[in-house]
């Protein structure tokens, strides 16, 4: 149900705002995202720098960095996730109450980064938990982190509450806890959560003829 724009601006001049309930709900949620204080490696220093006084993150609503996952909305995975640490990351994500979001900050959290060829490095945290925003960079500048928070805010603003367009957390049947991997003899068991992540198709197998046809 759309409101006439002219009527809207007339009412605004009188101090009366007309907006869908969903927009109001999302505005409240997006303007007060509290991150979890979860820095793993070098990107954590840029996260602290972006929360410091020069690139103040608090003006975007991230007022306090919560120490406990039970009180946080957002987990910024900043830094390399190693296989030794991966079960704890998934456990922390499970402990966060819905609605929860995850930002993978830095090349290491997205896909292993410069340490990709490593026996202890998890090639991206999105192997086990769903990630909402990825920030490339090594380390990404504080402005990039702010841009990511703004992108997340836009994502939250576009989430609907109606039945068939609901986000994951609004639906009681959807899982909000993800299985925690365990330490195996050579690798984590399982190496990835195939419901959350599929290995990418090798694009080099696409032949030139197929490209020309398309």
């Amino acid at each position: 149900m759309a409101v006439d724009e002219g009527l809207k601006s007339e009412l605004q001049k009188q101090g009366i705002f007309v907006l869908p309930f969903e927009q109001l709900y999302n505005w409240g949620r997006k303007s007060s995202i509290w991150p979890l204080q979860f820095g793993l490696a070098c990107c954590a220093i840029e996260m602290i720098a972006s929360a410091a006084s020069r690139y103040d993150l608090a003006r975007f609503g991230a007022e306090v960095f919560r120490a406990t996952p039970r009180q946080a909305d957002l987990m910024i995975v900043a830094g390399t996730v190693t296989k030794k640490m991966a079960p704890q990351v998934v456990r922390l994500y499970n402990q966060m109450p819905e609605p929860k979001y995850c930002i993978a900050m830095g090349a290491c959290a997205i896909s292993g980064g410069p340490f990709k060829d490593g026996y202890n490095v998890l090639k991206g945290i999105d192997r086990y938990i769903p990630v909402d925003v990825h920030i490339p960079g090594c380390p990404p500048r504080p402005e990039a982190l702010i841009h990511a928070i703004m992108t997340l805010q836009r994502k939250i603003a576009n989430q609907h509450l109606e039945k068939n367009q609901r986000p994951r957390w609004y639906d009681k049947n959807e899982a909000s806890e993800y299985p925690i991997p365990s330490y195996g003899g050579h690798d984590l068991q399982p190496p990835a959560n195939l419901e959350v992540w599929q290995p990418p198709r090798n694009y080099r197998d696409v032949t030139l003829d197929e490209v020309k046809k398309a």
Partner: peptide, 29 residues
């Protein structure tokens, strides 16, 4: 060991200068 990124094994696969950016990430401060 929660941040063991096998920096030493990576260095055995790269030329001498190639490990220089990885030394930045040792004491990342």
């Amino acid at each position: 060991g929660y941040l063991h990124r096998n920096h030493e094994q990576l260095a055995e696969k790269m030329v001498w200068l190639g490990s220089m950016p990885y030394t930045d990430r040792l004491d990342y401060f």
